[in-house]
Amino acid sequence: MDDGRPIFLQIAELVERQIIDGSLPEGEQVPSTNEFAAFHRINPATALKGISLLVDAGVLYKRRGIGMFVADGARDRLISERRARFTTEYVRPLLREGAALGLDAAALIDLIRKESPS
């Protein structure tokens, strides 16, 4: 795993993605930090940092002696956060690249319509 950002952020995002796509449903137990560390071949402290980020954000919660679980309402909350970032992360880069190639907003909308399964 490497996109240049700190690995604990990548671990946190991976778990978020699994919550959003439903492969980690609310109430489900998430793997332990040692399991994350072994699977991704990373330092356990790094895995713990990523998981702690999600506990602090209320996405996961701790059950003492048992492990970490996905919090109720986590999925909706993550989706609305992602939507809020959609403009800066996807729409603006799309417009910028379009502009560089001489495609204005109307042309981009046409392309999107053509590609969308109707």
Binding site: A38, I42, N43, P44
Partner: peptide, 8 residues
């Protein structure tokens, strides 16, 4: 792998 698992 062994180092990580045993360290954990």
């Amino acid at each position: 792998d062994r180092l990580l698992a045993d360290y954990a």
